[in-house]
Design a protein around this nucleic acid. Structure first.
Length: 141
DNA sequence: GCCAACGTTGGC
DNA sequence: GCCAACGTTGGC
């Protein structure tokens, strides 16, 4: 299988893109939803993910790489099913791609982000990924 | 196993 | 602040 693409949400109040850049690497902890967990478990080292700021900003702001595949979430109770992956920032998007811009693009209407708005870790198809990156080069949203 | 009540997420 | 979506809990 080729590289897979993902979108991961964080409220910037809790953990922002800038913090990940500052930290250099981080674990994506706190996921407590089974669908999101399955996505974390499906991630492979070298996959790439969009960092999305939920609530404040509501936009994709950067690209991360998965640097370590899923392992138990140290912030969860022992024996619980929750997992984390390790991520590292790759680069900021030239311009953030806003939720409004994604909603305005019919070719992105099937994204997990749109169809299942509460899902914090979603899949992005290669086609969707290329389109979002292209949008990030040309517009601020 | 069904469903009402309730809590959380996240957009508006 | 409100509400829709959706997950969880608990009564039956």
């Amino acid at each position: 299988m080729g590289k897979q693409y993902w979108l991961m949400k964080s409220e910037p109040d809790a953990y922002a893109w800038g913090q990940l850049v500052k930290d250099g690497t981080g674990i994506w902890d706190g996921v407590r939803n089974h669908t999101a967990k399955l996505n974390l478990m499906a991630m492979k080292k070298g996959d790439e993910a969009l960092f999305y700021h939920s609530n404040i900003g509501k936009e994709c702001v950067g690209i991360m790489e998965i640097t370590e595949e899923s392992f138990p979430d140290p912030t969860a109770e022992e024996g619980s099913p929750w997992v984390v992956v390790r991520v590292a920032p790759v680069r900021a998007l030239t311009h953030p791609v806003t939720l409004a811009a994604i909603k305005a693009e019919p070719r992105l209407a099937d994204m997990d982000l749109i169809r299942q708005s509460r899902l914090s870790v979603g899949r992005v198809t290669p086609t969707e990924w290329q389109l979002i990156l292209k949008m990030s080069e040309t517009a601020a949203g």
